[in-house]
Each structure stands twice: as C-alpha cells, then as structure tokens.
C-alpha cells in the first residue's frame, strides 16, 4: 500500500433527487477492488446519503442506503463527515447509520468508520490527498 495513491471521493449531493450519490458509490466500490488508499468525504447535502431509516418503496427507486454498510468489507473505512453540514441541516451523528469495519489483524474487532470533522480538519485531510473525485 505504500505507493498506493491517496484517493478521496467528495460527496455533496442528496440521494435520489439526482444520480450523483449512487454513481459515486458504484465508482467507489469498483475502485476498491484495486489496491488503493480510499477515503470518502460527505459534506453539504451529501450528509443526507448516510441517514438512517430510508425507505424508497413509495417512490419506485432502489434504496441504496444499505450498501454504505458494505464499505467496511471493501476496506473503505475512512469516512469523513463534515460537522457544520450536519448542524446546518438539523442532524446529529445519531441520525446517521453506524458504519463499521472489522480489523482482520485484531481478531475482526469492530471499529467505527465515520469520523466527524470540522471544516478546518476536513481541509487538512483534503490537502493530504493525491487525487480528488467530486460527486
């Protein structure tokens, strides 16, 4: 992994209203099949993608919110959520899915994938990436 590029996917759109959220998730999952150092950022309306309790049976669209829980299996376990974006929308961490990954090296211990960050912390994380993808 040492010479793998650090790639970050930045998600800023709500799910269902546009196709960006699902497209991003598909690209992340395909990309994760290769050895990359992947992280995700959710900010602005992108934080809505991670909310609990989504039920799309009434609108005739695929509910892809369960797929975020598979990210840990795909070794995508650095998920940054922008605190300001949550607050502006009246959301807290409790409104989001509890995403975890299992650490094979520590007897499959469950660890949190989501990291709640301030704007300035997120700014530092972005500055540290090699490649940014925007959705």
């Amino acid at each position: 992994m040492s010479n793998a590029k650090k790639m970050m996917y930045i998600n800023r759109k709500a799910p269902y209203g546009t196709i960006y959220a699902w497209e991003s998730l598909e690209v992340v999952l395909i990309g994760a099949a290769f050895e990359q150092d992947v992280s995700l950022a959710f900010m602005d309306d992108g934080v809505y993608q991670l909310t609990k309790g989504q039920d799309t049976s009434g609108i005739g669209m695929k509910n892809f919110s369960p797929t975020y829980a598979a990210l840990g299996d795909f070794e995508v376990n650095k998920i940054y959520v922008d605190k300001e974006s949550l607050e502006e929308r009246g959301l807290t961490l409790d409104d989001l899915q509890h995403l975890v990954w299992e650490d094979e090296d520590e007897d499959w211990a469950e660890k949190d994938s989501i990291r709640l960050v301030s704007r300035s912390e997120l700014s530092d994380v972005l500055a540290d990436q090699d490649v940014l993808f925007n959705f």
Binding site: L29, A69, A70, D73, W108
Partner: peptide, 18 residues
C-alpha cells in the same frame, strides 16, 4: 439481501473465510 450489491471477489473470499 443485506447490502443490495454483490461483493467483489476479494470481499467474497474474505467473508467466506470468516
């Protein structure tokens, strides 16, 4: 059923092992 996607082969191998 749980995740609404098929696992990639690397994921499948690991999960089957577990």
């Amino acid at each position: 059923e749980e995740y609404q996607i098929a696992p990639a082969v690397r994921v499948l191998t690991k999960a089957i092992g577990k």
